[in-house]
Write a protein that binds this DNA or RNA. Structure first.
Lengths: 208, 208
DNA sequence: CCGTAAGCGATACAGTCGTATCGGAAAAAG
DNA sequence: CTTTTTCCGATACGACTGTATCGCTTACGG
């Protein structure tokens, strides 16, 4: 057999290039040729990794979803114990891709969301990512509620609602920052105020 | 002078076609030829109305922004007096384009937002629309707060923060519905819960 | 009544798109 | 060594893109 190649890593490399291009050139700027050039491979190589462009984008959106999720988990692992409430705060900060160094991921995310409204196949992995994030937030909210004085703890439906509220709020804030309607500071201010209110609602006693 | 034509109305007609196409074909589906066909005019006619495609999209995004804003105002005018709180509720419902008949506008909005992250010229009118919506919400929140028992009324910074929270939340919910992460009912549930909390915070006494 | 200019739609153009194809380089297997 | 199989990058192709150009029609101003 001839030259063997690590397809998995090449696909990842190409997905990275897709994200970079989607970020700096917008949705229309992502052509197979540009992706190939950005990934420093030939057009043929890209075609061998992905039969079609749609397939490539699909892989890229899964890639980004995993990256965000993984970063949130890493942030949680970094500050291990502490209070469940601050953990939730950190997670929310990470999900809302507000800081400049995550702006790229935020733009890519938005590009894919816009595209997914039309292409059902693109929507599926996006839904999976949202579901995973929601699940994580539900877990964190639950833990935060339990750590409080626990008036009996909020009943589950409220918890899910709070998680969804938080997820939608962070997503909205992110896009508002991206279009320039809000500054990063303003968005963080809104997010922190919401979290403070959430803690009060849960009956959490927080130090900071 | 020869034949005179009503450019204003034609531009509006073309903008309408842009929106329809952006909705059903996505961002990539909006080509000059398709727009011309959808608007039932010749390609040349489109070119005479808008020197360039960018210019056409710019007009279309302004058009959509005005339409949404106008609809919110119409809704407020329809239920004139009542309480300031229910007015705020109606406005929020209208801003979050949740109902099926507004789904189209929501998709178009998202397409433009995604594009605006890259093209600065597209971002400008979008920012104006957001600013107008935020202004409206600030006004409604203020009125709702004043109509309450008025412990001294919430101080302005809080009002702005609440308005921004509401705007970001509605935007986030809208996109989550569009990608299918939430159903319309779930999103409405989240929105209503948030509004209830907001009223409590403002000290508003609401009948319903 | 005629010239002039605004509007018309068709066509041309150069470029880019996604995809298909193909001859040759390269490396494991015999 | 030769054979065989996998991968390579270049090129080809047709469709479509945004924009420019160009006669022709049309209707008002003089």
């Amino acid at each position: 057999m001839p030259k063997q190649v690590d397809y998995a890593s090449r696909r990842r490399r190409i997905a990275e290039a897709v994200c970079l291009l989607a970020d700096e050139q917008g949705p229309e700027g992502v052509s197979m040729r540009d992706v190939a050039a950005r990934a420093e491979v030939s057009l043929g190589a890209v075609q061998r990794c992905f039969r079609t462009k749609e397939e490539m984008l699909l892989f890229a959106v899964e890639h980004i979803g995993e990256r965000v999720m993984e970063r949130v988990r890493a942030r949680l692992g970094a500050s291990p114990a502490q209070s469940a409430a601050t953990a939730l705060g950190h997670a929310a900060e990470e999900v809302a891709l507000l800081r400049e160094d995550h702006r790229t991921e935020a733009r890519i995310w938005l590009v894919f969301v816009a595209r997914a409204c039309v292409s059902a196949s693109l929507a599926a992995p996006l839904r999976r990512s949202y579901a995973a994030l929601e699940g994580l937030l539900v877990r964190l909210v639950t833990e935060a509620a339990e750590s409080g004085p626990g008036v009996g703890s909020a009943m589950p439906p409220h918890v899910v609602r709070e998680a969804r509220t938080l997820l939608a709020l962070t997503d909205g804030l992110t896009s508002h920052v991206l279009v320039g309607h809000l500054t990063t500071e303003q968005a963080e201010d809104v997010l922190h105020a919401h979290l403070t209110g959430l803690w009060e609602r849960l009956g959490v006693t927080t130090a900071s």
